[in-house]
Design a binder for these strands. Sequence first.
DNA 1: ATAGTTGCAAAAGGTTTGCTGCCAC
DNA 2: GTGGCAGCAAACCTTTTGCAACTAT
Lengths: 142, 142
Amino acid sequence: MDAIEILKQLKDKGVRFTPQRQAILEFLLGTESHPTADEIYHHVKAKFPGVSLGTIYNTLNMLKVHGHILELSYGDMSSRFDGNPQNHYHIVCSKCGKVTDFHRPLIDVDQEAEEKSGFSIIGHRLEFYGICPECNGEKRLN
Amino acid sequence: MDAIEILKQLKDKGVRFTPQRQAILEFLLGTESHPTADEIYHHVKAKFPGVSLGTIYNTLNMLKVHGHILELSYGDMSSRFDGNPQNHYHIVCSKCGKVTDFHRPLIDVDQEAEEKSGFSIIGHRLEFYGICPECNGEKRLN
DNA sequence: ATAGTTGCAAAAGGTTTGCTGCCAC
DNA sequence: GTGGCAGCAAACCTTTTGCAACTAT
């Protein structure tokens, strides 16, 4: 499903179609990265120089609330947004913050969660926490 | 392993034992909830009225870096801290933010992650995202 | 005695809110 | 024409930082 299609669907819920929203959603759907609001802002600004951060947050929140994107918070202050849930998992170093991809078959539990909870499940997130080899090798940890 | 024991171990790494740290760590180990820094602050303040938020953050970060607690960020602005990893999973509503426990057998992948990545794994976190039944039933979603 | 820690306050950074004008419908 | 949205700026909240006094070692 592409950006235009999603935005058309949302019209039924009183959400308006604007070119800024189209640009934001297209960017999110077209990347495998999990950009921050600020990164999205700078990207959209290339096409719409007048766009403001408030619009970015407004749109991201609207898309999240309607279940089209995921807001993923890592320890590092700013949230990241994901337009393509279900790609891969992460391992995060509790010391240096480094994020490593962890490739393994996706865990098949979304349907179980949906049945047991009654939620409409959009996706899941699996994250491992630990200390990376480099940080483990260092002497002073403070 | 209790708070005093953990803090004694950390002395080898140049970390000092202070009563504030003991109180913070004891609170985290003794609760199943995932308190925010501010909640910890208010709790510790009952015993140490002079304690400051800076000390809370300082201690939490130190404990995190040494792999004794987990910092879990949800969409809601402030981080939550967990002294007892590996208890259960969560389902988060993307609209209203409600967090529901999801009880199921723990997924046994920590060792696999440790072997494949070289990290010392402390624990993992599995979270489902969706729209809860109440929010799904409402008419206006904006 | 030394170096890490506390408490305080200021600063920083991300996100939200209020408002006016504008634009999609 | 109406109501939602854009843009802008101020406000807000969480977290970090700087520093002098203190204290565990």
